[in-house]
């Protein structure tokens, strides 16, 4: 990666984290974070559409857990036994690994799934408005045997749990 790319990424990362860090309440932070698409959609009464401008590209480009968590949430996570991370012990195929995250923690605003052994750390992140249940299921790719980490942002704090998932080459089964 060239220096210019690094700088560009760092700047985007800074802008996002600054924007996130400015307000105290996390719900407000996320609302501010996603403000452009959100407000426009409501103002003109049109269908609420996915907005590419809201994509946290800097966070998704990070290659370590610490950098990814900082870029996405601008805070550090503490381990929690209040999160259920449902993923297989041995993935039947690294290309399709079912992963579910749920938690009983109150005030959940975001859930993220990280795969530490992948080229880019963050696999998926979800913004949960009030009223949406704190449980999301997805299917992700794992490049190799790795720890999968679930992050839950709740009540302005960040919590995590991790699980090791074994991945071997597939192709001869079935």
């Amino acid at each position: 990666m060239s220096n210019t790319e690094m700088t560009a990424e760092a700047e985007i990362g800074f802008v996002l984290s600054r924007r996130m860090g400015l307000t105290g309440a996390v719900a407000a932070t996320l609302a501010a974070f996603f403000a452009p698409g959100f407000k426009a959609a409501h103002a003109d009464g049109a269908m609420v559409m996915a907005d590419a401008a809201a994509y946290p590209s800097a966070a998704f480009a990070q290659k370590t857990q610490d950098a990814a968590v900082k870029a996405m949430f601008n805070m550090t996570a503490t381990a929690s036994d209040q999160i259920t991370l449902d993923a297989p012990d041995i993935a039947e195929n690294g290309a399709v690994v079912p992963v579910s995250v749920s938690t009983a923690l109150p005030g959940v605003t975001a859930i993220a799934i990280l795969a530490l052994g992948n080229p880019n750390t963050i696999a998926a992140a979800y913004q949960l408005p009030a009223g949406t249940k704190s449980a999301v299921s997805s299917r992700i790719k794992l490049a190799k045997t790795t720890d999968v980490v679930a992050l839950v942002q709740a009540g302005g704090k960040l919590y995590s749990v991790s699980k090791n998932v074994k991945v071997t080459l597939g192709g001869c089964g079935g």
């Binding site: 959100f38 946290p56 998704f60 963050i122 696999a123 979800y126 913004q127 949406t132 992700i140």
Partner: peptide
């Protein structure tokens, strides 16, 4: 008309 979930995905989400 009200958002109930926003997902951000990287290339590690399955096909």
């Amino acid at each position: 008309g009200t958002v109930v979930l926003t997902a951000f995905w990287g290339p590690a989400v399955s096909k």
